[in-house]
Amino acid sequence: MECVAIPDILLSFEAIYPELSRVGKNILKRIVLLLTQLIQRTRTGSMEYDKTYEPADAPNVSIHRH
């Protein structure tokens, strides 16, 4: 989950807007969750779909600073 610190670093350098930092963190958390579940499934042999991983509705945020 160290990768979730990247949006904080970018925000501290004013390279991104706070809203984009929040959205970025949510995306990174979902990626980590997805990969963790994939690893667990391959270890147990279970490939059932886990409904706890549902994409959240993220606002449409521009990644470019004006």
Rank of each mutant, 00 (worst) to 15 (best):
M1H: 14
M1Y: 12
E2G: 04
E2T: 08
C3G: 07
C3L: 14
V4Y: 02
V4I: 10
A5Y: 03
A5H: 03
I6Q: 13
I6A: 15
P7N: 07
P7Q: 06
P7F: 10
P7G: 01
I9F: 04
I9T: 09
I9E: 05
L10D: 02
L10T: 01
L10V: 03
L11A: 12
S12M: 06
S12H: 09
S12D: 12
F13G: 09
F13R: 07
F13E: 14
F13I: 05
E14W: 02
E14K: 15
E14P: 00
A15E: 12
I16Y: 00
I16D: 02
P18R: 04
E19S: 06
E19V: 07
E19P: 00
E19Q: 10
E19D: 12
L20Y: 01
L20T: 04
R22V: 01
V23D: 00
V23H: 01
K25T: 11
K25I: 08
K25M: 04
N26C: 13
I27K: 06
L28F: 12
L28E: 02
L28T: 09
L28Q: 03
K29F: 05
K29P: 00
R30P: 01
R30D: 05
R30C: 04
I31F: 06
I31L: 15
V32A: 14
V32H: 10
L33R: 13
L33S: 11
L33N: 12
L33H: 09
L33I: 00
L34D: 11
T36I: 02
T36D: 13
T36P: 01
Q37E: 04
Q37N: 05
Q37C: 05
Q37W: 03
Q37P: 01
L38Y: 12
I39D: 06
I39L: 10
Q40W: 08
Q40R: 13
R41P: 00
R41G: 05
R41H: 07
R41F: 02
R41T: 00
R41D: 01
T42F: 08
T44C: 11
T44I: 09
G45V: 03
G45T: 06
S46D: 15
S46F: 03
S46I: 14
M47R: 14
E48Q: 04
Y49V: 15
Y49T: 11
K51E: 03
K51S: 07
K51G: 01
K51D: 01
K51Q: 06
K51C: 03
T52M: 04
Y53W: 06
Y53G: 02
Y53V: 08
Y53Q: 03
E54R: 13
E54S: 12
E54M: 08
E54F: 08
P55K: 11
P55Y: 09
P55L: 10
A56H: 00
D57S: 14
D57C: 10
A58L: 14
A58D: 15
P59V: 10
P59Y: 03
P59C: 03
N60E: 13
V61N: 00
V61Q: 00
V61C: 01
S62P: 01
S62E: 07
S62M: 08
I63E: 11
I63F: 13
H64F: 15
H64P: 00
H64V: 12
H64A: 12
H64C: 06
R65W: 03
R65D: 07
H66C: 07
